[in-house]
């Protein structure tokens, strides 16, 4: 076993670096640029029951140290993902992929997960509970421990694959949602999704994004993500995937010290298509600098 190997919910990874959902498409764009088999895994574009066009333009804004997106879960729908995207991915990626799933009711999540459960390429289901609950007044599932648990139970009933629940940071107490997901049977948690944010255009004096609000990501959110991973690691016993503004090998190590068993990299892929490849390349030298022999030994190392 190499110095970078880690385990995520019983599935071995060559390294902890996982491109985050929504920043890596279904893989083939990046496969044009480098051999994506160097990745630990990757989380594909958030997939829903029905095809979605997503939000109107503009969908992207910028800020100091990051960006806002309001793409709105554009995806071709689970049937076409299975029929078209996964076969295309099989040609360029020869490891288990993380299937990111979104829905607007527990039944929709279960519908999508049940179909993806049958795909041998899928190693984990990553369930994005930041979506609005159409039967719950539009409030995000992820902001209410009981609504989050409902989704987890619905998904766990239809799949034997590890279920990783992606938590939203837009809550008062992320630990209570994390504990509810763990109690409902989640095999792991990934955190954090983007922070709700907005920008206003001084020229038009109106919100810059057509959707008014968007999700903030990039280095600006990294310390928030580290804090939440640290807090959740104190409370739960299932593995965590640290996500949020990770942009360097140093950031990967910091996130793992906070408690992450693996680390997702999002916005950094958008500013540099080679970001993940370069971070994996840089890890051994950075580990040497900090006297780290094996990454798997530092998970949660910052805790007392």
């Amino acid at each position: 076993m190499g110095r970078l190997n880690v385990d995520l919910c019983g599935v071995g990874l060559d390294n902890p670096v996982i491109p985050a959902s929504g920043t890596f498409g279904y893989g083939h764009e990046f496969a044009e640029y480098y051999d994506i088999d160097c990745l630990g895994a990757f989380s594909f574009k958030g997939t829903t029951k029905e095809p979605r066009f997503g939000n109107p333009q503009p969908r992207i804004a910028e800020c100091a140290g990051g960006m806002l997106n309001a793409v709105g879960l554009q995806n071709p729908g689970v049937d076409r993902v299975i029929a078209e995207e996964l076969p295309r991915l099989a040609k360029v990626f020869h490891k288990p992929v993380m299937a990111n799933v979104s829905g607007f009711s527990p039944e929709e999540y279960a519908y999508v997960c049940e179909r993806l459960d049958k795909q041998p390429q899928v190693g984990w289901l990553e369930v994005n509970i930041s979506c609005p609950n159409v039967h719950g007044g539009g409030m995000s599932f992820g902001t209410d421990p009981e609504a989050a648990a409902q989704v987890v139970r619905a998904v766990k009933a239809v799949t034997a694959k590890p279920v990783i629940v992606k938590l939203t940071p837009n809550v008062t107490d992320v630990v209570s949602v994390a504990l509810a997901c763990e109690a409902a049977g989640a095999d792991g948690l990934s955190l954090i999704n983007t922070l709700q944010a907005m920008r206003i255009d001084l020229g038009t004096k109106k919100p810059l994004l057509a959707n008014v609000t968007g999700g903030l990501s990039g280095p600006a959110v990294f310390p928030v993500a580290v804090r939440m991973v640290y807090q959740v690691h104190e409370a739960v016993h299932i593995p965590l995937v640290g996500v949020g503004g990770v942009s360097s090998a140093e950031d990967v190590i910091e996130m793992m010290l906070a408690g992450a068993a693996a680390v997702e990299i999002g916005a950094a892929n958008l500013t540099d298509p080679y970001a993940c490849r370069d971070i994996i390349r840089d890890l051994p030298a950075v580990m040497d600098r900090y006297g780290i022999q094996n990454l798997r030994d530092i998970i949660g190392g910052a805790h007392g």
Binding site: K45, F53, M67, V71
Partner: peptide, 20 residues
Amino acid sequence: RMGCGFGACMGCTRQTVNGP
């Protein structure tokens, strides 16, 4: 208005007769 510029983020999608 683009996020990445190389097809990853879906930030600049527009509708066409062939779909997004």
